[in-house]
Amino acid sequence: MANLVTDSVPRGTLLSALEEKRRQQMKKYLLHRLFFVAMLREEVLDGEITAYHEQLFQRIQKFHLGEPASGVVLIYSRCILHILEASSGTLYHILTDLAALEKQGPKALLQDVKIVVMSHNIPTRLFTQWYTTTVDVPVTLEDVTQSQTTEEVITECLTLILKLGVYLATLKVGNKGLSECLHNVVPELLVPAETIQCLCRAKECLSPAQFLEMYSNPLQPSMDSETVWPTPAHMFK
């Protein structure tokens, strides 16, 4: 019986470990995953948000050939939840475009954009392709986010997103996107609209401009003693 139990446990070999290491080194680029939320402008025309994302990704693909982006945009009545998996260069273009939208003020299509989390060097994609879908969920009578910390709200949000990604991986999705309404099939896996609105107001989450500023800052800032003149000298030799 002990032999049967031992044989049933999968064991890795040195060869498989070396092959996996080689596959990681042969990657053309590292894969990252970006989560961000945003409120929609007061008056949004039908299809305007979908057209915006299509134009954005068509422009990015011209500069990053061979680096496909995958993910999903969940469009609610007043907000959106965006999950994007791509290379660092693609994500940088996305963040730059979002930062430019912020400068448009009230005229911008997306308002109060907040970066929820950035996952670096993920081993595999959670989404097999890129698509957009509209979500129609009823407003809950009780907003549970009022009694939760921002960390708890983010944890709950990411948990639902990962479960939704696992569910979508089992579906056969065509080029036109999802053929079924997620709010009718798996309403328990959808992030409530109140949660997204709470994250858009969270001061702990950075805006695209703040995120890019932090990204551009050096890891080792210069000290005050390095910029004064004349250079400081020891009092005693």
Rank of each mutant, 00 (worst) to 15 (best):
I154V: 15
I83L: 08
M118F: 14
T145S: 07
M118T: 12
T90H: 12
V139R: 12
L141F: 11
P68H: 14
F63H: 04
E151C: 07
L109T: 10
S88V: 12
T96R: 15
Y92K: 14
V135C: 03
H82W: 08
G89E: 03
A169K: 15
L84Y: 11
G89R: 13
T134G: 04
Q146N: 03
Q111A: 05
G89M: 06
V73A: 07
K114A: 04
T155Q: 11
K107L: 09
R78N: 12
D97F: 12
L110S: 04
V137Y: 08
E156K: 14
Y167M: 01
D136A: 10
L110K: 13
I161H: 00
L126G: 07
L81H: 13
R78M: 01
K163C: 06
P106A: 13
I154C: 11
C79W: 05
Y167C: 01
T124H: 14
A100G: 08
W130C: 00
S119I: 06
P106F: 14
C157I: 03
H93M: 11
T145L: 03
L81M: 09
P106K: 15
L162A: 09
H120W: 10
V153T: 14
K163W: 05
T134S: 09
H82V: 13
V113Q: 11
A100N: 12
T159I: 05
E142Y: 15
V166T: 10
I80C: 14
T149H: 02
L162Y: 15
Q146C: 04
V173F: 09
D143K: 11
G71N: 08
L168D: 01
V73N: 08
T133D: 01
E102R: 10
Y131L: 06
G105M: 03
E67G: 06
I122Q: 07
